[in-house]
Each structure stands twice: as C-alpha cells, then as structure tokens.
C-alpha cells in the first residue's frame, strides 16, 4: 500500500493543503495524520451524523484506499460503527438519522438523491457484529444475494457462485456436505464466515465489517482475521474493531475515533508504535478504553 503523501483530488476546500507545512498532518478540526490516500476507493469529507438531536459524528474526513484494510478503533460509543454504517447507507433504516458531508465511492456521491441504495449496497457490502445468517439453508443463505439481484441465469451458475463464495470465505470444506442444513445450525465462527460468503457472493467492491469477531472465540477470530487478509487481495475492507491487537494484525491503516471525532489516522505501525495525538496514545497504552 502506498502511503506517500499526495494531492487529494476530492478535497472540498482547495485552501486546505495537507502538504504545506510542519502542520501537514494536523487538520484545523483536529484530525492528526494522513486522511487521504493515493487511490481512494471511498473518500469522505466533513461527514456529520445526527440521531435526532444527538450529534453522533462530527466532521469526519477519511479515505479508504483500494485493496487496503482500514481499521477503525476507539472507545465504545465513539461513532466508529455509525461512520461505517454511513458508508453503505445502512443508517437509512434508522429513523431520525441525518447524514451531511460528502461521501464518495469511486468519485460518485453516495448520498446523491440520484443514487440508488440497492446497487450501492451491492458494491459496498457489510458484515455485522453478531453473525446473522437467515433462517434458511446454508446454500440459500449464500444464494440469497445473487437470486434477488438476478445475477444468475441457471442453477449451475448459482452452484458455482455459492461454491466460490464459500471457498473464498474458507467455509467450503466444512459445509460442502451439508449445504441444505440451516445456516443457524453452524457454530458462531462458521456463521460469521457464512455471512462473509453471503456478502462476497454478490461481488462487492468494498466490504464493511462491524466488529465481526466480537461474538466469537479466539480460534474462530483467528480464522476470520486470516480470511480478511486473504480477501484484501480482491476487496477493499473497512473494519471496526474493539480489539487493538486485531487492528494491528489485519489492517494497513488505522483510524482512531473519540467522542464522534476522528482523532488520528495513520499507518497501523505508526499508530501503534508512535501515536501523535495524546488521546490516541492514552487509548493505545490502555489508560482508558
């Protein structure tokens, strides 16, 4: 992953120059570090989110680069999950939620009224905190996306998609003999991988993961982390995690959120070895969290 500084092609304010001075890494509103990347898949600028009266996210700008894993860490309630849910407009389903700012996917504003959420969500898939397989068979769980989107013309196509998706999710060997059993009968880790398989079955470009391992045991977690590393080759991944170790293990860049603000962004190594912001340092060293 290239982390060299570059001009942000999408920055809203031309006056703002991230390279200009010693303060290059510090933005006016407080985000420390390089928020922009060379070839962003998604790029957000000045995002604010309100739940009714509550100002949940304040002025967050962040790029998610092609084929990289961005980890979002921070104490509970800091808005990292909320930010993640903005990226495929899952917040639309929450009553009273308002999102402002610019969120671009391949330079297209995803909150543009002309943009349809259905194709958006096909391109930006999501895996949730708690494994949520549908109460259907394993096969039907994976086939659900291709079926509703009409991606397949024959049963053979579908079989193939299901098989490759499950293989990519590393679940194929474990379930190939019991495809017609309910997905809810799998173990927690298997369920989560099933959900990942379900997500990649519609060939998304970006996968959002909201604490995908928080409900899993260490062995299942390790498997998912391994999987994330493999998936990076094909997909762009944004992952919210509670575990700093996990962020350190799977991500290339890490963003630290605090009380609805993005405090610091940087290469994962740098964040964990030499955080620039006091809050990040306190969090990393375990003074609070």
């Amino acid at each position: 992953m290239e982390q060299t500084m570059n001009m942000s092609k999408t920055t809203a304010e031309p006056a703002f120059d991230v390279n200009s001075s010693a303060l290059a890494d510090r933005r006016v509103d407080g985000t420390v570090g390089k928020i922009r990347v060379d070839n962003p898949r998604m790029s957000t600028t000045d995002v604010d989110v309100y739940y009714g009266d509550k100002h949940a996210i304040q002025n967050v700008s962040l790029d998610i680069g092609q084929n990289e894993v961005v980890a979002m860490i921070g104490p509970s309630g800091c808005g990292k999950s909320t930010f993640l849910r903005c990226l495929n407009r899952m917040n639309d389903t929450v009553a009273g939620c308002k999102v402002t700012g610019t969120l671009l996917l391949d330079k297209e504003d995803i909150y543009d009224p002309k943009i349809d959420v259905v194709p958006l969500r096909v391109r930006v898939g999501m895996v949730f905190q708690k494994p949520n397989p549908f109460p259907k068979s394993i096969y039907e769980n994976v086939a659900y996306g291709p079926r509703i989107h009409g991606l397949i013309t024959s049963n053979a196509d579908l079989d193939e998609i299901v098989e490759t998706s499950l293989k990519k999710a590393g679940l194929w060997e474990e379930v190939k003999d019991r495809m017609d059993q309910p997905g809810t009968g799998l173990s927690g880790g298997q369920q989560q991988r099933l959900c990942i398989a379900r997500t990649i079955a519609v060939s998304p470009e970006v996968i959002l993961m909201d604490e995908p391992c928080s409900a899993l045991d260490p062995i299942a977690t390790a498997k998912i982390e391994e999987l994330i590393d493999e998936l990076r080759e094909q997909f762009t991944i944004a992952i919210v995690t509670h575990s700093m170790q996990q962020a350190a293990r799977v991500s290339q860049r890490t963003a630290y959120f605090h009380l609805g603000k993005l405090v610091e962004v940087g290469e994962t190594n740098q964040i964990f070895t030499a955080p620039k912001h006091k809050l990040t340092e306190d969090y990393i060293t375990g003074r609070f969290g």
Partner: peptide, 27 residues
C-alpha cells in the same frame, strides 16, 4: 424477528419487499 436479519438483507442490497418476502416471512 430480530433487526439484524433485516440489516443482513438490506446490506446485500435487497429492497424492502424482498426482505419481507424472503427473509422476514420465512423467519
């Protein structure tokens, strides 16, 4: 039916009626 089921379906790009017919009602 837990909200997470609906979320899972919406996140795959399903419309409301597809979610209702293919996920919620079976559930």
């Amino acid at each position: 039916v837990p909200q997470s089921m609906r979320d899972g379906s919406y996140a795959l790009g399903a419309t409301k009626s597809e979610t209702v017919r293919r996920v919620i009602i079976p559930a």
